[in-house]
Nucleic acid binder design. Sequence first.
DNA 1: GCCGATTTGTCCGTATGTATC
DNA 2: CGATACATACGGACAAATCGG
Lengths: 242, 242
Amino acid sequence: MPKSIYESIYRDLKRRIEADEFAYRELLPSENTLIQTYNCSRNTLRRAVSRLVSDGYVQTMQGKGVRNIYQPVEQTSFAIGEIESFRESALRNGQSYRTQVLLFMELTADEALSAKTGFPVGGEIYYLQRLHFLDEKPLILNHNYFLKECARGLTKEIAEGSIYDYLEGTLRMSIVNSRRIMTVEKITEIDEKYLELNVEDYNCMAVVTSYTYNGDGVMFEFTQSRHRPDYFRFQEVAVRKG
Amino acid sequence: MPKSIYESIYRDLKRRIEADEFAYRELLPSENTLIQTYNCSRNTLRRAVSRLVSDGYVQTMQGKGVRNIYQPVEQTSFAIGEIESFRESALRNGQSYRTQVLLFMELTADEALSAKTGFPVGGEIYYLQRLHFLDEKPLILNHNYFLKECARGLTKEIAEGSIYDYLEGTLRMSIVNSRRIMTVEKITEIDEKYLELNVEDYNCMAVVTSYTYNGDGVMFEFTQSRHRPDYFRFQEVAVRKG
DNA sequence: GCCGATTTGTCCGTATGTATC
DNA sequence: CGATACATACGGACAAATCGG
């Protein structure tokens, strides 16, 4: 449910573009036309369009108009600039998914863990290893560290479903933003075992390290996602700034 | 030179945050206060702040305020959500850089190339292989394909400097946005040779494939950047959307 | 629990600037 | 040159969330 006018306009325009209502490189109706179509103010419409720009759907040209540059993307890929759980991503791509919890334990952050994760020394932590399957193929091995005080009551059973559903739904926590760093690292024995990799084939993998903050500005999650290199695909739209 | 009020406010706030004027997790002055400070309208200030949000510098909380969550980043990394040439990126990180042109040729897109790059069949193309050095270490091997009609007069000499400077400065082309896809691929003999890699060590590398559009909505560049895995690092800030 | 003050979020209308045709 | 298009900026109104008394 869109909870604001600009968002419903954004969604409608996005839908129309995806439905091929405008040819590739064709100009969309002008701002004034769209304002009349949606019966909204100029600011509201511009806000919707600016989100389409950052999605890479259109480009605006002063004095000319707004051009459709949307081209459908072929393959499975992880969304960029947006926080999405594995489950959400799988649903979006219409695939079957499953999560297996390999390890669930509680620990206290020592110097080494603190340096690695950014959690305060002495902080109580849930540490999980989870294996994500897409269409019954093991693709991602996650090392999750959650600050216990923010994720109280987390269990192995919950972790087999969606942890984010639990945090947002049951604990009423708001998840705000996340800093992610992508690197390429050597595979470990654990990776090799669970992701069914062969060192002869690939000896390294894509690693996404993320630091996630909640609405109170507390970094409550540190996660290292280790992806099978042959299935890893990350996409983004970059915008040139003056 | 900031060419707008909101941008100069954005830059000033960014500078103040980077200069540690506000403690980590501290609230910034309220909107009303900042409006008086900068003597601007509410919309203008909010626009500046919203850019800081998408930069991951602050988070806004309805009813509470705007919290500083900026933490300086330690290492060299490539900017995200922004198109940046190799040279710009090196300058930003205060490193010495050099570009070596391994190959410069012209060709016509056939079916195979068209399928790979998205250029129309029969399109005339400049094809370049370029090796980028940072602090005299070969880090990136680029395969660049430029649509000839958009990059007329490109030479090997220009390509040893900044191609973007030439396109934007001399040809007055505006570069607007770019779609990038990150994957992990096997290293090739060319990679091994020029990036001084050892297959025993790493047998794959980070590959960034990008499709870049100009202000006329023409996809004029297709580039495959092959990065040394041990130096590759990509960073972004993701925002959770309702 | 209520109320009022503060703070951010959404939306509107208008005016002016600048680029394109 | 005028008409059209997007870009920037201002000011005002109300909603929603938070916090303190």
